[in-house]
Computed example of a mutant assay.
Amino acid sequence: MYKNILVINLMQIGDLMLTTPVLGALRKAYPEARLTLLADSRWHDLVECNPHVDTCLFMDKKGADKGTLRLLAFAGRVRKLKFDLVINLHRNERSSAIAALSGAPRIVGYSKPPWSLLFDKVMKNPSLARRDGNRRIPGTQHQVHSHMAVLREALGIAQPEDVGLTLCLSEAAAQQAEELWQQEFTPADKVIAFNIGASWETKRWLTEYFAQAADMLAAKGYHIAFFGGPMDKDIVAKCCQQMEYKDSGLVHIFTGKVSLAVLAGLLRRCVLMLTTDSGPMHIGVAMNVPIVTMFGASPVPGFYPYDGRSVLVKTPEACHPCGIHQCQREGEGNLACMKNIPVAAVMNFVWELLDKYHGEPAYKLPPHYGDYQCRVIDLSKGEF
């Protein structure tokens, strides 16, 4: 029986959120163990209050812990904590090295050579796309399912309990979100969250499409709340300039103004989220918000919103999922994957979900444990 467990995921927001079901499963399997999560320090407020962990370690991989010597020093600090089990949940060199150098008697998960030589059990990650010549073949299952396979096959946990994505807020973040909401909205307002940015250009639906969707919702009296980080300010401003209702008082811009935890606190009060494939999408899932999302370059099986109430509209383009950050096609074919997801198709499912859940804010919707397969609308098959 393991007594001191470390789980490592040093990647982006979405990757970290998709690790949280593993924490819940480990807590159920090893209730007496001390469970530690190692994550990127930028995302501390997403996990520091997670009820399934005893403590978190944070690595400033872009700052104080950057570079080979500092990586080795950090691994040395991890080693002194004497973990008896280390689970690495991303196959990159940094996290593979920390796991391999941890000194733990048992080290399992994903790894890159040569660090994999020090692992007791190296697992493949079938959620990731792979190359076959010039073809990109999508993964075969969701990232969470791949992580759960690590628990089954490397640790012998026959049926890991999947409690879904988990995000709990500090009292201070919850209070800040409450105060900000009261400043912006009345109790009667129904608010749609818009997250229009994404780390890849090929993940972004067109700003004019988002503007059209926002106008259609505003015409029905819905308030629009724009979220995203500082890097999204320009595209949000461009989108708002294209809206007919930009001066209606129904448009609220939080882009670049709130922390991730406060973002989560605001999302739980929204009635729906219209979003790209992005970190905030997965935060929305954890906050119980029904989601409509559009996937162009992103592989559907691996990273769909882990929520049975949500809808994913998949591009009809044959080049899906290219996995390329910037489209290499020219002319009208540039970003065709997103251009050919029409507003009418997306709004069909927006109206459907608003009707189905009666415009109730996310925090009033009942939990739905175990129902994590979102509905995928494949436009290439004429499903709309």
Rank of each mutant, 00 (worst) to 15 (best):
Y2C: 05
K3P: 03
N4T: 05
N4W: 12
I8T: 09
L10R: 03
Q12V: 11
I13W: 07
D15R: 10
P21C: 10
G24D: 14
A25V: 09
A25P: 00
R27P: 01
K28E: 15
P31D: 11
R34N: 09
L37H: 13
D40S: 04
W43A: 08
L46Y: 13
H52Y: 15
L57T: 03
F58T: 06
F58Y: 15
G63I: 00
K66C: 05
L72C: 06
G76P: 01
G76R: 02
G76V: 04
K80R: 14
V86P: 01
V86K: 03
I98P: 13
A99E: 01
A99K: 01
A104K: 00
I107K: 12
Y110E: 05
L117D: 04
V122T: 15
K124L: 05
N125C: 07
N125L: 06
N125A: 11
L128T: 04
L128C: 05
A129E: 01
R131N: 13
R135V: 04
R136S: 11
G139M: 08
G139T: 03
V144Q: 04
H145Y: 02
H145M: 12
A149W: 02
L155D: 10
A158M: 10
Q159E: 15
E161K: 10
G164Y: 02
L165E: 00
L169Q: 07
L169A: 09
E171H: 13
Q175V: 04
Q182N: 12
E184V: 04
T186Y: 11
P187A: 13
I192N: 12
I196Q: 10
W205N: 14
A213E: 07
A214N: 11
H223D: 03
H223C: 13
G229L: 08
K238C: 06
Q242V: 00
S248D: 12
G249A: 01
G249K: 08
A261L: 06
L266T: 00
L267S: 06
R268S: 11
R268T: 15
C270I: 01
L274A: 14
S278F: 09
G279M: 09
M281S: 02
A286W: 09
I291R: 06
I291K: 08
V292M: 13
T293N: 12
P301K: 09
F303C: 12
P305E: 12
G308K: 05
G308A: 10
T315Q: 09
P316E: 08
P316N: 13
A318L: 04
G323F: 14
G333M: 12
N334V: 13
L335A: 05
C337Q: 10
I341V: 14
P342T: 10
V343L: 13
V343A: 10
V346Y: 03
V350S: 12
W351R: 13
L354V: 05
H358D: 14
G359N: 07
Y363C: 03
Y363R: 01
L365R: 14
D371W: 14
Y372Q: 06
C374N: 09
I377Q: 06
L379M: 08
